[in-house]
């Protein structure tokens, strides 16, 4: 059991980080924290993918002619993670921009306060 835990250390960390990030994004009222949560969640999945590609004793996939595949780590997850990182940074930028816009209107980054103010505004229309 303990051996398995030690062996799967990367996966375990990744899923822990994922749960932390997921819940932060879901339930933390502060928008900045939510965005941090989003980033935690995404990097957790990336860590999961990147560690999945690793093979003990394998080298970075800078290949030489005539080399065997077993000398290197698996390059597929690496490529997926590269794509994913850029997607994550785009979402983060959009999220932050929306936060700034909201702050200009409601002077708060607490989503509950914002929702409350928005409701009051709606009721007084």
């Amino acid at each position: 059991m303990l051996e398995t835990i030690l062996q799967q250390r990367y996966y375990i960390t990744a899923v822990l980080l994922f749960s932390i990030g997921f819940v932060t994004l879901f339930l933390h009222p502060n928008l900045i924290k939510k965005i941090i949560g989003l980033n935690l969640m995404d990097t957790a999945v990336f860590l999961f993918l990147a560690s999945m590609g690793y093979i003990e004793g394998g080298a970075a996939p800078i290949v030489e002619e005539g080399a065997k595949a077993s000398q290197y780590i698996n390059p597929v997850p690496g490529g997926l993670v590269l794509t994913g990182i850029v997607v994550a940074v785009s979402t983060t930028a959009l999220f932050l921009a929306l936060t700034i816009r909201l702050y200009r209107q409601y002077h708060s980054v607490n989503l509950d306060v914002i929702l409350m103010l928005a409701w009051e505004g709606k009721a007084e229309d």
């Binding site: 994004l25 928008l31 979402t91 929306l98 989503l111 914002i114």
Partner: peptide
């Protein structure tokens, strides 16, 4: 803007 940010949160989840 408020509804967009909620939309984005759920989309990201």
């Amino acid at each position: 803007v408020v509804s967009a940010i909620r939309y984005l949160i759920f989309s990201c989840l």
